[in-house]
């Protein structure tokens, strides 16, 4: 269960600058390569495919030539408070770690009841409807640091928590027992070509993220739910912020009108 007010020293979080993001998809591809995410022949069925990081495309709904689009990459929000998925899991297969703020899981403990998926407001979690299968020799590129899941379990973005372990191992090898800035970075952040994604300890002013989250451009998805996501977004466009359902009062009217303006 999450704490009422986060007191822990380290809270890993992410800031994604939507002004910079071009929706190129490199973060998602890097994530899926890193985390041994399976793929299927028909990936167009978005309701059943597996994506730890999904890129949503939203439009401002204006007519040509005033139409604009924005891309919202959506990893796990790593909710800090009332973490919805953690409290509902009947088998304690998912957990909020106070020392890092990561919402992690044991896929081999999951019984596949999918209650967490119903609970997650961000559609972050994916169920393994099929056994993962890699064609031909594709198994050879699988990352040994992440165990492939089996069918019948739910999985989600972990902020590449295995990279945290690796970073610690590397630090110890160098005779340190602490992590330095930049030691631990999730695959998506590393892959972003325009540095639209930032990662680090939200409590540590040494990290850029700690400052960025105070920017007037910063907002989070579905803030009204008070899940306190640790993934922040930056945008200078009001309409993008409205898409995030950031402001209950303004959203009310905008909500229904803008329903049509979604791309994916």
């Amino acid at each position: 269960m999450s704490t009422e007010s986060p007191q822990q020293s380290v809270r890993y979080g992410m800031v994604i600058d939507l002004d910079k993001c071009t929706g190129c998809g490199n973060c998602a591809v890097a994530c899926h390569m890193e985390n041994n995410v399976p793929f299927r022949t028909d990936e167009s069925d978005k309701s059943r495919n597996m994506a730890w990081l999904r890129i949503y495309k939203v439009k401002n709904g204006a007519e040509y030539p005033h139409a604009r689009v924005a891309y919202i990459p959506r990893p796990c929000m790593q909710c800090d408070r009332h973490t919805p998925c953690v409290s509902v899991c009947p088998a304690s297969a998912t957990n909020y770690d106070k020392s890092t703020g990561l919402v992690d899981q044991i896929n081999t403990r999951c019984i596949g009841c999918r209650y967490c998926m119903a609970a997650c407001p961000y559609m972050v979690r994916c169920f393994n409807w099929w056994d993962p299968a890699w064609p031909a020799d594709a198994e050879k590129y699988l990352n040994p640091d992440v165990a492939p899941r089996m069918r019948g379990v739910v999985e989600k973005c972990t902020f590449c928590s295995h990279r945290y372990i690796q970073a610690k191992n590397r630090a110890r090898q160098e005779g340190r027992n602490y992590l330095e800035k930049g030691d631990y970075i999730p695959a998506c952040v590393e892959a972003c070509p325009v540095e639209a994604m930032h990662f680090g300890d939200l409590n540590d002013p040494e990290y850029e993220v700690a400052h960025l989250i105070k920017s007037p451009r910063a907002f989070r998805l579905l803030e009204r739910l008070h899940t306190e996501p640790k993934v922040y977004y930056l945008s200078s466009h009001e309409w993008v912020r409205r898409w995030a359902d950031n402001d209950a009062v303004n959203t009310q009217s905008a909500y229904s009108q803008q329903r049509q303006g979604v791309e994916s």
Binding site: H32, F39, E43, S44, D45, N49, S264
Partner: peptide
């Protein structure tokens, strides 16, 4: 994985 990125 690029096919995965295609919108529906």
């Amino acid at each position: 994985f690029l096919m995965k990125q295609l919108s529906d």
